[in-house]
Design a protein around this nucleic acid. Structure first.
Lengths: 148, 148
DNA sequence: ACTGTATGGTGCAATGTTGGACTATATGCA
DNA sequence: TGCATATAGTCCAACATTGCACCATACAGT
């Protein structure tokens, strides 16, 4: 493992940190005031992987502490975008279900940000995102596995 | 701009958000308790681009509000890792300079995390990071330019 | 020079994040 | 069964982030 490899890795993580910041700002500019990216992301996650997950499942998926996820889903529930039902398999846990309003809000979010993303995509060499995606997935999976 | 392109972009930003989180956790696990990633990142930035920057310069580079950067550099100054000097060109602003202790602390950070990064790199197909870096730079620059 | 506006920086308050302690339920093992 | 340990979730307090109001300095147009 050469020093060069390590400094490339540093540079990659550095760029990723800044892009995450920019992406968050882009998103939040389009969400209604008071709604925050992690809230929308949880709705999106539930749509993509299916609802009925437990809060702890999602905390692991997002790599945040369980208290943070607890706070986030509580906010979503207050707004009527998700509802809790007991987990029949485990009396300690809840399952989180999307409401119709929650699905609609998630869809609105995509529709609102799509033009911003389209503008960014238009300024990038075509194929940039497709080139990034598989490598990013691989990196994420590897880092996830390394966190033992 | 097809729907597929937009959903690829969503997926890329999603992965980037999670990797940023994982990277942050990896780093903070190696920093002394109470030291936080943004603090170390600012020291790293000053080493890489040269010290003598103003806080506002750095706020822009990191895409954070100026109050956040003000808070961060104040913490670094309390720990003796940077010092402020007046800006001879502009009486409103400060310039931020690294101290010897600041440089040493930044170097220690690299040395502490390098083994973790090396482990991750060892589990990735070689060339993954090199493949990512130019695309990420491009994406970051484009998003930066789009934020007008 | 004078005045209006723009910019660098900070203090404060509201909010988000997170570690630690705690409760309740589940599971493994004698 | 009974007990020790592990796990899901929440409450609370400490701390980080950030929008807003404010001050000081700079600069542009007259």
């Amino acid at each position: 493992m050469s020093d060069d490899d390590v400094s490339t890795a540093f540079a990659v993580l550095n760029e990723i940190g800044i892009i995450a910041q920019l992406g968050r700002a882009t998103f939040e500019a389009r969400l209604p005031p008071g709604v925050i990216l992690p809230q929308w992301s949880v709705l999106n996650h539930l749509v993509r992987v299916g609802d009925g997950r437990t809060p702890l499942d999602m905390a692991r998926a997002f790599q945040v502490p369980k208290t943070t996820m607890s706070h986030t889903v509580a906010a979503l529930e207050r707004r009527g975008w998700v509802e809790f039902r007991p987990n029949p398999d485990d009396g300690r846990s809840k399952r989180v279900w999307l409401t119709a309003a929650g699905r609609a809000f998630r869809d609105d979010g995509i529709a609102s940000v799509a033009p911003d993303l389209a503008r960014i995509l238009g300024d990038l060499p075509s194929g940039t995102m497709e080139a990034l995606l598989p490598h990013l997935r691989h990196l994420r999976e590897t880092m996830d596995a390394a966190r033992d």
